[in-house]
Design a protein around this nucleic acid. Structure first.
Lengths: 253, 253
DNA sequence: CAAGTTAGTGTCATAATGACACTAATGCAA
DNA sequence: TTGCATTAGTGTCATTATGACACTAACTTG
């Protein structure tokens, strides 16, 4: 299927998808944003750079998941990413800022249509996916979540919402291995949890707990070239993880 | 705001909301369904009764939450219910059955438009809300969740999805007090959990756990007129409950 | 008054939690 | 080469949470 004009598909002017892609660089949580431009290198006189989540209208012959994947790829070249829907956003005032309206006028056949958008999020390994801008994206890059603000439309709110969902999940079930390289240290993993939760954790208790789940495989290998005691490397035991998913919740029985 | 034609609002032919309202009758979990008819008592020759979730297109000047509340009220007369969005559904093949297509043709200005729908769910006290059908609903009633099947469009799937969400939440945090009357017994509460989770729980352990949370207030009152030892009545301590919500999750620290 | 029904209660062995501080191994700079 | 900075790695203990388990109490109805 070609990326831009699926056979028999018409753009639906009322429904879009937006993707919140989280990555982790061993220090802090990042999110993939694009700088908004126009397709085909048409550039309106150099306006202020505006950042936004990768997103666009859907086609009438794709489902929402497919749309999200297509749009993400079209704008950032990322593909083969597991996207999870988290919420729909439909405030009539989603499009309010002058510059957003102007941009829509130069982009859309029906720029004043009321649009609701469906939010998708994902966790990926920062080192594994190299975003490359295309279509209307002038750039596609990782930004520290903590510093992001002033995104186009209601994207600040969509991002907040995705982050809240991520935190909730991180507290309730083991999560986030998608954000680390295949081999990682317990220190990496702890930092990741601390970045997601926004709080620090006790090292010994963290290790005890995570190891007791049996979702890690200890490798016969250590870090190299680090200016401190090298740590053991671990791998993620995905079979065990899938087993746990169904019953690692704690509230009742 | 009038219920049917908000000032300046046009129906958006591409976006609808559907409501999954759960109720509990002390025995099993029920869901509120309507029997599909036509507005204003126009009735096509008596076709097979078709059940569906209450839902309809949104207006362009309401947000999604408002739409869901409006539509629910318009079809079932229920109002002042806290609805929570849980997912959007957008398969291009959502409308596929002949009878669904025929019904849309008699109902909608643009019956062939591709529609995505946003699902909302809620838990209510069965005894507190008496559904009354209106608009295109021929009836509005409670049905045992376990027996529901063959709903219109993709509503079976939407219901399954809402139920899965409900189960997940019930395992992760205390939930469901909205389904019980203000004064209830621990037996009622346990039955409710068993109905939601679809499994039985140990009475003593259940009591210990639920009481230890401090979210119940023991009343100076007992059941009356029951053909067995009357149980103490409890009330729900909502202040304590709200406090817990933020930190009763168990996975890490 | 007997039968049926749900309420209500305690113990024990095991597992999970949270608080807490020191030594080990490495790279780098002086 | 030494020492400094940095992160890895480890165990205990007191407290709390868990899960398994069986009997008596109180009421209504027939």
């Amino acid at each position: 299927m070609p990326a831009f004009s699926p056979a028999n598909g018409n753009l639906n002017p009322h429904i879009s998808v937006d993707c919140v892609i989280f990555g982790f660089d061993f220090e802090e949580l990042k999110v993939l944003l694009i700088e908004r431009g126009l397709p085909d290198g048409q550039e309106a006189g150099s306006s202020q750079p505006v950042l936004m989540l990768p997103g666009d209208l859907i086609y009438d012959n794709e489902n929402l998941d497919q749309s999200a994947m297509r749009v993400l790829k079209a704008l950032t070249s990322l593909e083969n990413i597991f996207l999870e829907q988290f919420s729909a956003f439909g405030e009539p005032s989603r499009v309010r800022k002058e510059e957003d309206i102007a941009w829509l006028r130069s982009m859309r056949a029906d720029p004043d249509a009321r649009v609701i958008t469906v939010g998708y999020y994902s966790l990926v390994r920062l080192d594994k996916f190299k975003p490359a801008p295309a279509y209307y994206a002038r750039s596609a890059d990782w930004y520290p979540v903590s510093e992001v603000q002033g995104l186009a439309f209601d994207h600040d709110q969509i991002l907040d919402n995705a982050l809240a969902r991520l935190k909730y999940k991180a507290r309730v079930e083991p999560i986030g291995f998608e954000l680390l390289p295949q081999k990682f240290t317990l220190g990496n993993l702890q930092k990741l949890y601390e970045a997601i939760l926004g709080s620090t954790l006790d090292k010994r208790n963290f290790r005890r707990k995570i190891l007791s789940r049996g979702i890690l495989i200890e490798l016969d290998e250590k870090q190299q070239g680090v200016p401190h005691k090298p740590a053991k490397l671990y791998q993620f035991n995905s079979a065990q993880y899938d087993k746990l998913k169904g019953n690692s919740f704690d509230f009742l029985l």
